[in-house]
Computed example of a mutant assay.
Amino acid sequence: MESTLRERIKYILSCYLNGDPVSIDSKTFCEQYHLIYDLNGPDDSVSSEEHLFYMELSDTSSRFNPSSQERDKYPGVYSDEVEVYEKSRLIWNLINS
């Protein structure tokens, strides 16, 4: 049986935030989140409210750039690791409350 979008998002968030079952870095998280959410969109497992949360995370993760030089050159355009982590933690807490 194929996992739902919600299950896949929870899995990738758990890997990123908790290292469970495997640890991934911000770049890998952002790439995988794009593949899981941005390319597939919501399904029946995702409520309207969750969809809004996931869109926020998509906005932050899609702008991730590890280069401080690029972020300094174009302020406000890119997200850094702290922003991605904080938004991911917020979404994790919201969907697990």
Rank of each mutant, 00 (worst) to 15 (best):
S67H: 06
I91W: 02
H34C: 13
P66K: 03
S62C: 14
S3R: 15
D72G: 05
N40Q: 08
L57H: 07
Y33S: 02
L13Q: 02
P21Y: 11
Y33D: 05
E50K: 07
S58E: 04
P75T: 04
W92H: 10
L35P: 00
E7S: 08
E50G: 02
V82R: 05
S47T: 15
L57K: 04
Q32M: 12
S88L: 07
V84L: 02
L35V: 10
S68D: 08
N93V: 06
E50Q: 14
Y33G: 01
L57G: 13
F53T: 03
S62F: 11
H34L: 12
V22W: 13
S58Q: 06
S61Q: 03
L13G: 07
N65G: 04
D44F: 11
R63E: 12
E56T: 09
N40K: 08
E86W: 04
D80C: 09
D20K: 15
I24D: 00
Y33L: 09
D38I: 10
E31Q: 10
Y11L: 14
D38P: 01
E49P: 00
L17G: 03
Y16A: 03
E83K: 09
I24P: 00
P42M: 11
R63D: 13
R63H: 14
P75N: 07
T4G: 04
Y33H: 04
R8V: 00
D44C: 04
L5D: 06
Y74L: 08
R89H: 14
P42T: 10
D20N: 10
H51T: 13
Y54D: 08
L5F: 13
D59F: 14
H51V: 09
S62W: 09
R63Y: 08
D44L: 13
V84D: 00
S47V: 06
F29L: 13
H51D: 14
Y33A: 07
D20L: 09
H51F: 06
E81H: 12
V22R: 15
L5E: 09
E81Y: 02
D72A: 11
Y54A: 06
Y37D: 05
K27A: 11
V77W: 12
Y85T: 07
L39F: 12
S26E: 12
R71D: 00
D38M: 12
L35N: 12
S14R: 09
K73Q: 08
S26A: 15
S61A: 15
M55G: 07
D43T: 11
V77Y: 09
Q69K: 13
E81P: 04
L39D: 07
V82A: 03
E7R: 03
M55F: 02
E31L: 14
S48H: 09
S14A: 05
Q69L: 15
C15P: 01
R63Q: 09
V22K: 10
L39E: 15
R71Y: 03
S58T: 11
T60G: 02
L5V: 13
S14G: 15
S61V: 10
K87V: 01
